[in-house]
Design a protein around this nucleic acid. Structure first.
Lengths: 195, 195, 195, 195
DNA sequence: CATGAATGAGAGTTCATTCAT
DNA sequence: GATGAATGAACTCTCATTCAT
């Protein structure tokens, strides 16, 4: 029975993701979720008490999956340059993605939940994890002589801010792939020795 | 007549700004505005037909004021370095501001109005104006030998993305003044010759 | 001054007539009248306290005009058959008219003011006047041997009900000119001797 | 489930009928219906989205019932004269009815919905059905030598216009039973041979 | 577990009517 | 007389949330 229940939970999470991707966070109502899932109003409340709870569950699952994904890919890499390129390629995907994109919903969630909550922590941890990974890549790369980088930590922050900026510009004013490529190239060329 | 009316319009714009700063865009209702202005429901509709209209008016006025402000300050500057520092100082203020801060409301507006509208154009124009100004500063600075900068346009974009990223990080996960300072320093130090 | 005032009153009545013709009675608001007249809200209230008052004034004027009109035409007629045809021709015009048509507004007014009021009396008097005129025409015609008509009063009522029925059918389900002609012919042919 | 729901639907239709009979169509609000039904605002919207929908449902049911009613009575009749008298008796009831009377509401609906819609069609079909039935009665009656009637179709129209005229006169200026009787007699006496 | 009818709070919007100028 | 800004009541419609079945 627990299994069946879990399946339904998963089902709701998956379906609801579509709505959040389409409407952001604030404009999604429990009714929207009920409708896309084709379940009963009361049924939804058995699993989630609010749109916030559903959204939290969606993000949790997403982070898990991404984590596994990244871990797998990282182990296959050899040089730090490769790693950096991989990292940026993933980010590029996030910046340009249209479908299944929870970026806007995520920002809206953060905007309306300034006070620290579980979901907020989730998102922030993800961001910090990005900085950490990037810092390590840069540190290692500098040690190995692949990169020129005096202050890896600061450089990592700098890159992350740029990526975050591109992400939001992409969602609000539109960004072409070539614009993103140029900017990513600019970042990389500032690091690579003998560019 | 017109004068008195304009005063009331200004009054509403000013007061409503507080609500948008506090609640973002999507969660502001006409009722909120009515209440903070202490006017009647119907009274508000004499001036604005929706929260979107009020918000547009707020941004319009803000941009005017900022424009004048900046113009004054720019004429007082002598070197491009001074100009750059001034520009970044203004941006720092925007990144860290807490009161009267429409950043979140602006993002929420853009998120929920993907299709081009007047207000959206206003905001995008402002962003583009930032890039233009910055590009000119970098070009001039490079010519005068103040900066090291091979591709001013790209560099300007890069800086703007970073600033945008910091802006949003500041509103979502919080950013200390020293974090902002370090990042701004990082930007400047990448440009100045003989750093 | 009284003259000027009267002019404005007349102006309002004329303009407001357009609105009532277009929207009926119930759906006309004081705002509608203010707008079509391009006068101030308060200004309208100096002359009329409600849509009902405006409507009453419109009907009053209309009846006056119609009365004069008819009186003129009646004096020019010689035979009762001519008079009857004239009468029916006028009715036909009323049945088929599209512009300046207050039929619907009039019915709506009566529907929502079941209790006797001045305006109601006006309308009813007009209807009764129609019966009276028609009765006289039929009586005279019968005396002169133009018509076959045993009970002129009842016949007059009968014709008026038919006309009223056509009027409302015309406004609700649509009636072509030929349909009206056929019915009028049917009425006349039932009266004329040696049809 | 469906059964219970249908019961409530029927309950709303019945109760709402009272309001429409009392206030016509245009002046009935969803609030009025909510109040007479003693249900919640949202509850009403589960069944009907507008006053127009409720009204449509009322008329639909009414027409169904009337249809059955008439069919039963018609089979019991033998001569065409009997049928005609029955038909006129039913019409008399409609003309004089006070309770449960949707005449005014129906006219108001038609006035404010000139464009063809489902409800309008319903009403017009009912009117046309009346003409058809009457025409058949007159045709048969003429064939059997019961009536004198050269053009049954036109005569049927003529009678229907009179009835419609009486209906509206009854609702607007008032009509006594004896007035109606006299007029019905006038109609019949024009048809019966050896009058 | 699951359903979906029902409730009621609350947002948007429109106007009749007043009143200071 | 004339104006039009201002008020507040009234209406429409949507949802979060509950609860009997």
């Amino acid at each position: 029975m627990g299994e069946k229940t879990d399946q339904k939970r998963e089902y709701i999470i998956t379906k609801a993701g579509e709505v959040f991707a389409k409407k952001g966070f604030l404009q999604v109502t429990m009714k929207d979720i009920v409708e896309i899932c084709q379940i009963s109003r009361g049924g939804l409340y058995l699993y989630f008490g609010s749109t916030g709870e559903v959204f939290h569950a969606i993000l949790s699952r997403q982070l898990e999956e991404e984590g596994e994904d990244l871990a797998v890919k990282l182990t296959e890499m050899k040089t730090m340059s490769d790693l950096l390129l991989l990292f940026l390629k993933e980010q590029k995907k996030l910046i340009l993605q249209k479908k299944e994109d929870l970026t806007i919903a995520t920002y809206e969630y953060l905007f309306s939940h300034t006070a620290e909550d579980e979901t907020g922590k989730l998102i922030k941890d993800q961001f910090r994890a990005g900085i950490t990974v990037l810092t390590k890549i840069l540190e290692q790369g500098a040690l190995r002589g692949e990169f020129y980088c005096e202050d890896p930590k600061q450089e990592a922050c700098s890159i992350m801010y740029s990526l975050e900026g591109m992400k939001i510009c992409s969602k609000t004013m539109g960004l072409s792939e070539s614009q993103v490529d140029r900017q990513l190239l600019h970042i990389v060329s500032g690091l690579l020795i003998e560019e």
